[in-house]
Nucleic acid binder design. Structure first.
Lengths: 356, 356
DNA sequence: ATGAAAGCGCTAACAA
DNA sequence: TTGTTAGCGCTTTCAT
């Protein structure tokens, strides 16, 4: 018993024949080019539904020199070398950690939200090693995608520069640590930190501390500096800080340290919600009521913020909007290859819940 | 001032000329076909590096009728209709919730771990509505990908059937609720639940309850049934159950209910780690020591399991291995279009930590 | 406004 | 073992 060969899917030619016109005309209708008689247009449309025609991407791509898809690159995933994939098939290294961070889900949501109405689907790529970075560049060159939106998880990521040098259309989430002529979207971290400072002071906190993100990341620096500046403006020139790594556990550890060194603290600004979640748990362990004894403000307004007990007052990072803008900007760059690097900065807002 | 037209990237023709051979020979070398004189092979390789040649995917695809990429489809994302994307650009609906679940990250990790060494990158697609499902099918038909690995988040997902009817190569994560002639990988849920039951009983729990997943999901049913059967075999024919929704919050709520109805409980099997995390918090609120007063066993061994206090004893769901197998199986289906639907079942293991 | 025809870069018969 | 050649399905001048 042998297999039925799959029926070849209809081509432009088939539609043309069915409609009694030429391939060119069908192509015009499919691509929405005007200058087509409306009666013919109608005939063509009918032929298209009748035949069940769908355009062949490869053929189109070959002549337009556009793939019509974009890469979503997660770079420097932090899990680098953490483990080989066990089990059955061949394996490799893979970055799981990123996904644990609710932040990443929001980025994907924003990108997909923008792309999908346009019939585009992102190609997912990860790059943590020199080889995988090379793989990303090769993939883009050979036409896996027309350009990339890039989310870096650490500061010294060389990929933005590589992308810029290869003149591949790309947009980053967040400003690169080193100056690279490349487009990016970012949030005004300093302004967000100021929002937190103003709120803590207004609530009456007198002994305020902060848990920062990793200080080699520009965003962490900006949040810390912005917070300290704002606190200074309120008459609190010295704000103790413990550095974390944006993870749940690092938030716990940082909070332990701060509590040990500053038992009198009554307010904490934590540079992201995940660490704040950890901090909250530690505060509870130590019998400090939140917000009664200690007021806590997070950053991001991620899903962690509402999963916390108590729900977290936090600075809302408009991640979805930023991600959507990233996609929009990338498409613009793909359209106009000479487009100059552009940066777009979003304003954060304060979301007040129960933790302060 | 006008733009430099981008330099056209080298083609097979260019390489052939540089190496002094024909296109066909270069093609053979590129594709690793034997029957090429090794001296010529070397010459061609040099010409390739010299010219910086990379094969054009579209051209290759057009003739091989293969795209060389696979879709990763998340279907029935649960967030359906949750909200329009705000902000700047056009918007749409998008599924963020999935990403919050550490489970999904592991699936992606497994798939990427398998695909990447083979130079493949998954195309990410979401389908929650009839329109987006149609979009997925269209995308597959027009050659966005050669097939799909599918993760459904709810039971009545119609996509598996649509895929099967369209005869598109596809592999599911988990057995579909309705019988559909389609390949899938799954874990032996009953065996996992038995592991949990045996452990709880061996630890001396006498009043055991369970928090199940949504009972319209086959996996939830199997875990519950397997757990009850095993407990019955240990002489505990009645195990109270509260149904949850696999989310953190639903875990809290279910635990509250169980505590209210069965204050004497001293052991809980929770059908996933995320709910177990919620349950743990509720137990603490009620002053129940874990594992002293109540022993807790989760399911999945997700990152939530180690983020818990205390770290969770849990049934390890070999998600990464399963996801890798899913990718492998899909590639097999793509190779051999007539391949019959296949199911592969993995064995879970018990990971003992501090919660029981 | 429509059609004819020339490729886009590649693979795969088929010839040599 | 290597080369020649014929398309894959589409867009896009260029005629008409």
């Amino acid at each position: 018993m042998r297999q039925d060969p799959p029926p070849p899917s209809p081509t432009l030619e088939d539609v043309a024949r069915a409609a009694g016109v030429s391939r060119a005309t069908v192509s015009r209708v499919v691509n929405g080019v005007r200058n087509v008689d409306s009666a013919i247009q109608e005939a063509v449309r009918q032929a298209i539904t009748a035949t069940g025609y769908v355009p062949n991407r490869a053929a189109r791509s070959l002549v337009t020199r556009r793939t019509g898809s974009v890469a979503l690159v997660v770079s420097g995933a932090g899990d680098e070398g953490a483990g080989a994939l066990g089990g059955g098939g061949g394996s490799g290294f893979f970055p799981v950690q990123v996904f644990t961070d609710p932040f990443f889900g929001r980025v994907v949501g924003g990108i997909v939200g923008f792309l999908r109405p346009r019939g585009l689907h992102p190609v997912l790529m990860f790059a943590e090693t020199p080889e995988t970075r090379a793989q990303v560049l090769t993939a883009l060159r050979q036409g896996d995608a027309d350009g990339a939106v890039l989310v870096s998880t650490h500061a010294e990521d060389p990929l933005p520069r590589l992308l810029a040098e290869a003149k591949l259309p790309a947009v980053l989430f967040a400003r690169p640590a080193d100056p690279v002529p490349i487009s990016y979207v970012d949030v005004d971290h300093r302004a967000g930190a100021k929002l937190a400072a103003d709120h803590l002071v207004a609530r009456g906190s007198k002994h305020v501390v902060t848990i920062s993100g990793p200080l080699d990341v520009p965003a962490s620096q900006a949040r810390l500096a912005g917070f300290r500046d704002a606190m200074a403006a309120h008459g609190h020139p010295f704000v103790p800080c413990a550095e974390g790594g944006f993870t749940y556990h690092s938030g716990e550890q940082a909070m332990e340290r701060l509590l040990a060194e500053h038992p009198g603290l009554d307010g904490v600004f934590v540079a992201n919600d995940l660490m704040a979640q950890g901090a909250l748990l530690v505060l509870r362990h130590h019998g400090r009521a939140v917000p009664g004894d200690v007021a806590v403000v997070g950053f991001d307004d991620s899903s962690a913020a509402t999963a916390c007990r108590p729900p977290l007052t936090t600075v809302r990072h408009p991640v979805e909007d930023m991600a959507a803008e990233m996609a929009r900007l990338l498409l613009e760059h793909i359209e106009q290859p000479g487009h100059r690097p552009t940066s777009i900065i979003f304003d954060p807002t304060l979301v007040i819940r129960d933790s302060s």
